[in-house]
Design a protein around this nucleic acid. Structure first.
Ligand SMILES: [Mn+2]
Ligand SMILES: [Mn+2]
Ligand SMILES: [Mn+2]
Ligand SMILES: [Mn+2]
Lengths: 218, 218
DNA sequence: ATAAAAGTTTAGGTTAGTCTAAAAAAATTA
DNA sequence: TAATTTTTTTAGACTAACCTAAACTTTTAT
């Protein structure tokens, strides 16, 4: 069984490698986890011995099938718990991440099975992120940043790229939520900001940065 | 903030001291936690510095008001989680303890507040044990072991003294649950075992040991 | 192609929590 | 009361996860 720390490393490596596609460098992991490169080197050696990643000194690490599966199970737990917190306990979507970061490490297959059932086998968490099923299968929806949508085309908000509290709180404040309808009225040449209308009702201006972190479908 | 280990020590000391009443010896703690006396000595020094217990070498430890409150908050979390697992996720009462042992260490006052509300502010867990409120107040019900009840008097099962899986599974098997009605038909002189009738329907024999671990009210 | 810079690993330490074995204190027994 | 046994503490070590500083590779720049 993996330690809390090992689980966190695997999750980070999985994310930084874009789901196992590319190799990840020591410093990337260190930056992402707020640790030092020397600590990362120690840990990747450990994970390597357990066949969760393959590690070649100076060349970074690649996650193995085994490691990928472990990472997906942690992500599954994280997102199921976030869904529980929002759907059942009435947390707002900007309050759940830190608590889920703790809950994701609870070890009990039965608990996750029953939680999943209790929630009605959800396929996405409160931020629109897909929830892997018990076999690690993820339902992938092709989404694009709002910034790439043409003028006057209706788009539906599906997920957020950045899940930080401040971003989520800002979205709530201006009336954007998962499922909202957005139409771009004007694209400002100068800074790439957009004038949009939300749910055919509310007109607001959003920065390029915001539009790039909103993923939508047409 | 307390570590998981510190929380577990405090909970154990609280329990072994009968809620703070009496002093607890090093070896009692060691036995109860499956550690060694030397480890306990180290930890009680640490807890003592934090004013959670008072410790005099060779004389055992007494829990302070502060330590008692911390212990009660861990117990509160443990019992709320057990209630959640049984009431919402449909765990059976013999499956919840080990998972709650993990969940009790999640740090989030908001989570516990919302969980309590979601469960309808329960006052007892699935084993009939009282749930401290957010101020640490416990509702005490005077209960007696079934072994002390007179013949042919109706008694209601309120809680179990022993919460082990095997005991709980046995109770379920013979039809005893929290709230069940029990009447003693005969007390066997030889070994103190009892012939009882459950819910005015089912007659069974139970050992003295079982009758001493069932707490009832008349 | 060599020197400088950047990135990574190694060496050696720290802390929390654990252990065993030895020393010390308290309790029990003769 | 003195000897023995039991309990507790101290001393010294171990592991997981972290750190800083130094050494070593790899990359980039001259
Ligand atoms: Mn999250
Ligand atoms: Mn985590
Ligand atoms: Mn329990
Ligand atoms: Mn615990």
């Amino acid at each position: 069984m993996l330690s809390l720390t090992e689980e966190n490393y695997l999750k980070t490596i999985y994310r930084l490698s874009d789901g196992g596609a590319k190799a990840v460098l020591t410093n990337e992991i260190a930056d992402s986890m707020n640790t030092k490169a020397a600590s990362v080197t120690d840990m990747v050696k450990k994970l390597s011995v357990k066949d969760l990643i393959s590690y070649e000194p100076y060349y970074g690490v690649k996650i193995t099938r085994l490691g990928k599966n472990e990472a997906l199970m942690v992500i599954r737990k994280h997102r199921l718990w976030e869904t529980f917190l929002v759907d059942k306990l009435k947390f707002s979507w900007d309050e759940v991440h830190d608590v889920a970061e703790q809950l994701e490490h609870i070890q009990s297959p039965l608990l996750i099975e029953k939680l999943d059932e209790f929630l009605g086998y959800p396929t996405a968490d409160p931020h629109g992120h897909p929830i892997p099923d018990k076999n690690g299968k993820i339902q992938i929806l092709k989404q694009v940043p709002l910034s790439e949508i043409a003028l006057n085309k209706k788009a539906f908000v599906r997920s957020v790229k950045d899940g930080s509290s401040s971003f989520l709180q800002y979205l709530s404040k201006i009336g954007i939520y998962i499922g909202a309808t957005i139409t771009i009225l004007e694209r400002i040449e100068f800074d790439g900001s957009l004038e949009i209308v939300i749910d055919n009702k509310k007109k607001v201006f959003i920065s390029r940065d915001v539009s790039e972190n909103l993923l939508v479908t047409e």
